[in-house]
């Protein structure tokens, strides 16, 4: 069994190879993209919010290391169907715990990229003419 310190646990590689909702979302109401300037990891998240603040659906695209991409998949799976308030309550520490293996400060940035993108995305409405 891999130790808790092992960075690339099987469930991480599973999410990397078989991600949850990788792709674009037709009819997205909100979207945001950011990159980690240290390493060039990029994540974009598109989502659909309903009037009550529920995240009906969300998809991500991006490129980068295993940690940045697998953590995006885990985050989207976790938040799918929840509300903006739930997301607001979902802290950086929660994200690192969801990922699992303990990360050094530099790799934490990889893990938290999609979390930061999603926290911004719910406040970034897509202009009407600009819908994907």
């Amino acid at each position: 069994m891999p130790s808790e310190e092992e960075l690339y646990q099987e469930h991480v590689l599973d999410h990397y190879e078989d991600p949850f909702h990788r792709g674009t979302l037709a009819g997205a109401t909100h979207a945001h993209e950011d990159k980690n300037p240290l390493c060039g990891d990029v994540v974009r998240i598109e989502l659909k919010l309903d009037d009550s603040g529920k995240i009906e659906d969300l998809y991500f695209t991006g490129e980068g290391c295993v940690i940045s991409q697998a953590s995006a998949s885990m985050l989207l799976e976790e938040i799918h169907g929840k509300t903006v308030d739930d997301l607001k309550a979902f802290s950086a520490a929660d994200m690192l715990a969801l990922y699992g293996p303990r990360l050094t400060p530099n790799r934490q940035k990889c893990c938290l990229l999609s979390w930061k993108v999603l926290q911004s995305a719910v406040h970034s409405p897509v202009a009407k003419g600009d819908q994907p």
Binding site: L7, Y8, C39, G40, C65, R107, C110
Partner: peptide
């Protein structure tokens, strides 16, 4: 990704290499 090389080389082989854009973003 380069991060995977740098991480595994370090953790499992004791090899320190650089991963990233090495301060040459336009070249990359």
């Amino acid at each position: 990704h380069a991060h995977e090389f740098a991480q595994v080389l370090n953790d499992q082989f004791g090899v320190a290499v650089r991963a990233g854009h090495h301060c040459t973003q336009p070249l990359h």
